[in-house]
Measured scan of single mutants.
Amino acid sequence: MGFKLLSKLLVYLTASIMAIASPLAFSVDSSGEYPTVSEIPVGEVRLYQIADGVWSHIATQSFDGAVYPSNGLIVRDGDELLLIDTAWGAKNTAALLAEIEKQIGLPVTRAVSTHFHDDRVGGVDVLRAAGVATYASPSTRRLAEVEGNEIPTHSLEGLSSSGDAVRFGPVELFYPGAAHSTDNLIVYVPSASVLYGGCAIYELSRTSAGNVADADLAEWPTSIERIQQHYPEAQFVIPGHGLPGGLDLLKHTTNVVKAHTNRSVVE
């Protein structure tokens, strides 16, 4: 069995187990497998329904001669939608809004960016022009300005110390501490036991640490421990890039980060 097929099978099995364990909360999309990078042309966006009122959005972007996937989250909030992270750029984010209108038909009224990198804030200006209120932590807003990236308009308070959590509509926002970046936030959907790890969490097929220019490698494993301790009931975990899975993604990420750190020390 090929690795790609095995990865998709694991996603399907995880979703099936969740649907059985929580039949009222989960209505997993039966329309197909989780979209992969090879299936999404740059400039297009796919939506994948995880649970009743919960979707991931998947886009792709060219970077350094390669094409990478990027995940975000959409959560229903009454007759409105909360968006977590842009679709990595203005063109993708405009396509995301169009796809949401086509498939869901509810307005996106608020959006949260989970850290300051372009795959999370690139497209904020498109959201703002569409009347979406954009939010991020003060740290993310400051770092985005320093980096020359787009800056969300509103500040999220109460997320300055490791372990801080605040309720934001249908989700809980959690600051686990520094990891992929010093400002990275985690998003949890309690009604569906869905954990969105953003770039602080890796997919299972990833074996290298990737972009760690703004990471705190020493603190990252401790931050992941905080996530595990705060959300032990999480059933569906979405990484910032690639295929979702279960809580095993947290341990896998820790292993990859520690291996990278150990290699760096040896070198």
Rank of each mutant, 00 (worst) to 15 (best):
N92H: 05
E219H: 15
N255E: 14
S160N: 03
E225C: 11
N262E: 06
N149A: 10
L159K: 01
G2Y: 09
F236P: 10
L13A: 10
S205K: 13
T207D: 14
A25Q: 11
L73G: 08
V265R: 08
E147R: 11
G197N: 07
V67D: 05
N149C: 14
L127W: 03
G163S: 05
W88F: 12
D79A: 08
T109G: 11
V42M: 06
A144G: 09
L9V: 11
L9Q: 05
E219I: 02
A192Y: 05
P221T: 14
S155N: 13
L195I: 13
H230T: 06
G169P: 04
S191E: 05
Y12A: 14
K91F: 05
D214T: 15
A209Q: 03
N255L: 13
L96N: 08
E101R: 05
T253W: 01
R46T: 09
A200D: 08
Y188K: 02
G89K: 05
G65Q: 12
R142E: 15
I58S: 13
N262M: 06
N255Q: 14
L96A: 11
E172G: 11
G245S: 05
P41I: 11
L82T: 06
A133H: 14
K4H: 02
M18Q: 02
S264A: 06
L173G: 00
K102L: 12
G89R: 12
T261Y: 03
T207P: 05
A25S: 13
S155T: 12
D248R: 07
A200M: 10
P232W: 06
V45E: 14
D85H: 00
V67W: 10
Y68C: 05
E219M: 14
I50N: 13
D214I: 08
A218Y: 04
A259M: 05
A87H: 01
T222M: 04
G65H: 03
V266P: 12
L96S: 09
T134A: 06
G72N: 05
E267M: 05
L10T: 13
R263M: 04
S205E: 13
L6K: 03
T134N: 06
R141W: 12
T182K: 05
D164G: 06
T153K: 14
G163V: 09
Q49R: 11
R128V: 09
G123D: 01
T254G: 11
I186R: 00
Y34F: 05
G78W: 06
N262K: 04
E172V: 09
L81I: 12
A15T: 04
W88T: 10
K91H: 15
A209R: 07
Y12M: 14
Y12F: 05
Y68K: 14
H154A: 11
S223V: 10
E39C: 11
A19F: 04
S193K: 14
V37S: 09
L81N: 13
A19R: 06
L143G: 12
V112C: 13
T182F: 07
D125K: 13
L143Y: 11
I74Y: 01
V75R: 01
